[in-house]
Amino acid sequence: MEKLTGAVVHPAQIADSTHLSDDDALKISARAVLEDFEAVTNGMKRPDSDDESTVDNQSDPMSSWRILINAIAAFYQNDITAMKILVRSFPCNSPAAVLRNVFEILAGKPTNPDAADRFANSLLVRRKELSDGLDLLEEAALYSEQLRNEISRYLPALAQESIEGSKRLYYWAMEHLAEDEPLTELDELSVSVPGAGEASRICALASIRYDPDRALLAWMRSLHSVITERSITSSEATARLMIAGELMESAKRNELLTGEIISSVAASLKSSYTMMETLLPALPPVPTDPEDLYNWLIQAGKADLPVNKLVKQRKRKVKTRELFLFDEVSS
């Protein structure tokens, strides 16, 4: 209960909670507080005076709200002295304490007119900036190429301030600026943007249908990023490798699998091989032949075995170096 007192901001969080039954005492109390609050703020009813409500009861999350209700009632009754006493009894860490300054002003405390003006102006300016910003953004979206370039330049700086902000901007740009071609050029940015693995994955998905070769390269960048970030499990690594194999097959079917792409895929796998091996100990070395590379990706996608099983495997006599976990070859 004490923890709840500091955590609950509004009684509605308890009154509307689906975790409590309707006959729960706390829920009933919260509902009563909401009804009393609505009544007193409409000046319709003055709650019964209750000595208990002026006492900071650490075990009652609603206590500060009851004091607040009585303070509001006292104001409407023009009983400023009683209001001041109640306001002084707001618990320091309670939601009601946020309104202490407001009550002091109601009680006649002089305000700083400059502060009020600055506050009002900041709201107005922010609203203006937001509305101007939206207008500019819509207009800028008409020139998608220029906007993409600007966003590309802006993203690294934004990522330094806010990772989530940079991700949201990146996803917005990918969805709204993909009119003519996929946003894979923004994917080049992904190496410097935190959360690059996720960004590259989305980029790959956006290209799958009509640019499977680009999708494959973006997917490999995504895999490399999440491996480097150490943000995936062995199961996810195998799933990603299998999908890479399927993307490779799709690019091949569409006659888009060039030697350059194959080299890029192999290079990406080799660069992250050491870290991948920690997740998938049974991973064989990366081949460079296209046919072997495809088989490697598919087999690696099935190589998710615990290390202890790997140890048992290693104890068996190995005839050749090309040992696939489910395909032991004897010479």
């Binding site: 998905l205 195998t238 799933a239 299998m242 999908i243 998710d304």
Partner: peptide, 13 residues
């Protein structure tokens, strides 16, 4: 199963 669920998640935007 888990591999299928992972695959579905990874291919969903």
């Amino acid at each position: 199963d888990e591999p299928s669920r992972l695959r579905t998640i990874l291919l969903n935007p």
